[in-house]
């Protein structure tokens, strides 16, 4: 018991200064690729057209790495509508509709001492009944479509849907996205989005007027 306390003190503060400070160690290939040289690029996800990269489609496959280089800055998510009512206590429920597990793992990372999103007044609930936001990860599979709708129905209003990762935004190269099943209020790009991107999206959704 005592030793746990000493161990903790000796370890110091691990938590990132983000969003007040800069984001450290942003995974390079979750940031936006920028064109460096001319040449033919075959983007399997169809994210590149006319030299511009649509991050909502990018799957971090590096097929463009000969001519494009990521800029290293965290991507900003698209916030269509926010939920300012939850500014002090923001509860989220994650539903996995068909992911590869990476997005689940990154959302789970928000708990760890490095990102520690509780410090920002954000919490995970165990039931959509208590949730302000529904984080959808993965493509919408046939088996989970009903469950996704049921979870949305079960949430009290006001509520928002956060499509997290390319799969849930557009379906990526695997299936169909959340569009057409539920209205997506926030789109967090990335395959998987870095914890910073998710955190940033949550903050901006909460603070949006």
């Amino acid at each position: 018991m005592k030793s746990w306390v000493i161990r903790g003190l000796r370890k110091g503060v691990l938590t990132t200064r983000f969003p007040k400070g800069d984001a450290e160690d942003v995974p390079l290939w979750t940031t936006k690729p920028v064109k460096m040289s001319d040449g033919e690029v075959r983007c399997p996800a169809g994210a590149i057209s006319d030299g511009a990269v649509d991050m909502n489609r990018c799957i971090s496959c590096r097929r463009c790495s000969e001519h494009y280089m990521p800029d290293g800055r965290p991507v900003h998510s698209t916030v269509n509508s926010g939920i300012s009512i939850a500014s002090r206590s923001f509860h989220i429920y994650m539903i996995d509709t068909g992911s590869c597990g990476a997005c689940n793992s990154e959302v789970h990372s928000l708990h760890n001492p490095v990102y520690d999103f509780n410090r920002l007044g954000m919490f995970v609930t165990n039931t959509p009944r208590h949730a302000d936001a529904l984080i959808v990860v993965g493509v919408v599979s046939e088996g989970m479509e009903m469950a996704l709708k049921a979870a949305y129905e079960a949430m009290p209003s006001p509520k928002i849907v956060i499509a997290t990762g390319t799969c849930s935004i557009s379906g990526g190269i695997i299936g169909k996205g959340v569009d057409g099943v539920l209205p997506a209020d926030v789109l967090v790009p990335g395959c998987p989005p870095s914890p910073y991107a998710i955190l940033d999206a949550l903050i901006r959704a909460r603070d949006a007027k």
């Binding site: 039931t127 959509p128 009944r129 989970m144 009903m146 469950a147 049921a150 979870a151 129905e153 079960a154």
Partner: peptide, 10 residues
Amino acid sequence: RVPVWSGGTS
């Protein structure tokens, strides 16, 4: 009357 939340299935 709201449907029961039972893991997403009825």
